[in-house]
């Protein structure tokens, strides 16, 4: 339980930290913290407690970011871009990208290729997660629209 709390706090701090680097507006800091913390915690719980595949965990994390961003950016009148960017930084596969270079330097080309493919897969699953959020929202909008027309 303490580990969960630590994850929530530190990932929120990390998202807010990246928002400081990219000079996000002051009023967005709290929103970024909530979104970044929640998405990372969901990813972490899925990976460490439910033991699902890391690709699926990344997908769900990105989906959470997408849905929360849609809601919060409309509510607080912020561009979506501002919330997306700092929150995604936690989920970026930095470790795999680093190991790609490391194994390349150590002349382990097969291992390096393996890590490169993993990096690419994780990154593309993050993209798929973000896109699915947009798609789900537009689908829901379409359903609501057609129901109104019928009446």
């Amino acid at each position: 339980m303490i580990a969960l709390l630590l994850n929530l706090v530190l990932s929120a701090a990390s998202a807010i930290g990246f928002s400081l680097i990219t000079n996000a507006p002051h009023r967005a800091a709290g929103i970024i913290g909530v979104t970044g913390g929640l998405s990372w915690t969901i990813f972490w719980v899925l990976k460490n407690w439910a033991h699902v595949n890391i690709l699926f965990a990344n997908f769900v994390g990105a989906l959470t970011i997408g849905l929360l961003t849609y809601y919060l950016s409309r509510k607080f009148k912020l561009p979506e871009n501002i919330i997306y960017i700092p929150c995604l930084v936690n989920l970026v596969p930095g470790g795999n990208a680093y190991r790609t270079i490391l194994y390349m330097v150590q002349n382990k080309y097969i291992d390096s290729l393996e890590q490169a493919i993993t990096t690419f897969l994780i990154a593309s699953f993050l993209a798929v997660g973000l896109f699915s959020a947009q798609y789900l929202i537009s689908l829901a909008k379409g359903v609501i629209y057609f129901r109104k027309i019928k009446r």
């Binding site: 530190l10 990932s11 701090a13 930290g17 990246f18 400081l20 972490w44 936690n90 470790g95």
Partner: peptide, 18 residues
């Protein structure tokens, strides 16, 4: 200094994974 502290916090996130 605020940006530097922010960078420090960003660096801590991957340690959670390991």
């Amino acid at each position: 200094y605020m940006k530097a502290i922010g960078a420090g916090f960003v660096s801590m996130a991957p340690m959670l994974l390991f």
